[in-house]
Design a binder for these strands. Structure first.
Lengths: 254, 254
DNA sequence: GTCTCCAATTTAGTCGGACATAAAACGGTG
DNA sequence: CACCGTTTTATGTCCGACTAAATTGGAGAC
């Protein structure tokens, strides 16, 4: 007796209980939020739909109402749902969702990622990242540069298929962000970068052979080292464009 | 006996109880989250500090532990704090904060807004908004155009000092965002726009007389109507630059 | 017949106290 | 001094009751 219900007594299954033994679970609330978040992002819970009451839904998930409510606060905090007395808990329209929240992005990429949304993300990335690289070229100090050089060296020794290689890639981009001396920009790019990493994972799921990323990164690094903002902007724009082409190929045109 | 505590038994007051009558409060959890969020954003709870236990803190706020925990889930969802068994709840470093979350932005501007952070926001706005205007110029349809025209007309009849005037301003910018056909971009700009509105409110608090915004907006509208992406980009860049100058004047140079 | 207003109902919101669990801190041991 | 089991303690979870708010439907007035 739980799930979504436009009319009362209408209740889809949503898999079944979150975890078998009653309450004994590592990070139970996180699991609930993840499950419901994915369900909403994947469209299983459409905007405007009202979830069946807390008591019914929490029982269906086999968790206490407290744990269910705390998970709901998380979803509410990210703009996915809204609860009001008597009216129940409703899924908010898409434009209320905090799509740039790291968790929301993770949920979006947990299921079948929406091609249109990926396109939007790359478009945003193509706007923000080159500008960030340009700022980094103007403001970086030698310490920033050293981190980037080390990260790039690590990347050339390990492929992006390995975890250590991906970590080096993250370090490289994070170093650029820190060099911008702009918190807002850093947070945004970090979110986008994380999402892009999901698509990288997605690409490898499709067995698309990754192109060698070193030359692209090298050009960005050289421009930043030379304090050439315009060149850094262009080099990063090329990098993003190439990544987009790879992803587009893996998705089969889009 | 609650507050923050690097060493146990160290407890600042943090005002006092959230609301007088026990538990009987409209949106109590929201009030708690707001209070603590502002406290963290304003630096009263510095990153790395550990909050005194749930029991002690909830008692100090005169709310139940449930309500306190639910408020904490909200802060945790926005990356402000992290809780672990035995270790307690700690304020996360700034780079973990979701600074682009609408609530977090509101909390940041609730107290004395950090000048450096405002600078970061305007820098990001100067990157994103012109690009958005350019996309809107390429993709807008006649319906988008009509909304913008109506909003601009409303703006010319009412000043930004009135609520109806500000609503028209919001409508204008939202119409541009919708016209980009890019969800990620829309969400981001909406957050930034909201934050910028706080600064507008801040400007009027400083009695800085607002310049007439109609001509700037008119140029953006004309460029979008003409489907001239480059002109739209430049016009919006000018608009942002002028807003920045106003804000800079109100803050006394920055 | 339509509209307004009041009350009943239903649902989220809050409370308090109990127990389980995990990890940090402690102490003993090799 | 390093390692490992034990204790400690704060978070995590559960339960059941009560409060308050908003929707809904009906009674009453026009």
């Amino acid at each position: 007796m739980a799930g979504i219900a436009d009319t009362p007594e209408d209740n889809p299954p949503l898999g079944d209980r979150v975890r078998a033994p009653r309450g004994t679970g590592r990070r139970l609330r996180g699991a609930i939020a993840h499950k419901l978040g994915v369900a909403i992002l994947s469209g299983e819970f459409a905007p405007g739909a009202t979830l069946s009451g807390e008591v019914a839904f929490s029982e269906a998930l086999d968790v206490s109402r407290s744990a269910y409510r705390e998970a709901m606060q998380v979803l509410s905090a990210k703009g996915l749902v809204e609860s009001r007395p008597k009216a129940g808990t409703r899924v908010l329209p898409r434009n209320r969702w905090n799509l740039l929240d790291p968790d929301v992005l993770a949920w979006a990429f947990a299921g079948e990622p929406d091609v249109q949304f990926i396109r939007s993300l790359f478009e945003l990335r193509a706007i923000v990242e080159p500008a960030a690289a340009a700022l980094a070229a103007e403001r970086r100090d030698s310490a920033d540069l050293k981190i980037m050089r080390d990260a790039l060296a690590a990347m050339s020794h390990h492929t992006l298929a390995s975890e250590i290689g991906r970590a080096a890639d993250r370090d490289f981009h994070n170093a650029i962000l820190r060099a911008t001396r702009n918190d807002a920009l850093s947070v945004l790019s970090a979110s986008i970068g994380a999402a892009v990493n999901w698509t990288t994972q997605f690409k490898q799921r499709q067995r698309a052979l990754p192109r060698n990323p070193i030359p692209d990164h090298r050009r960005v690094l050289d421009a930043i080292a030379a304090k050439d903002a315009i060149a850094a902007n262009r080099a990063m724009a090329v990098l993003v464009e190439l990544a987009l082409e790879d992803t587009r190929a893996a998705m089969g045109g889009g």
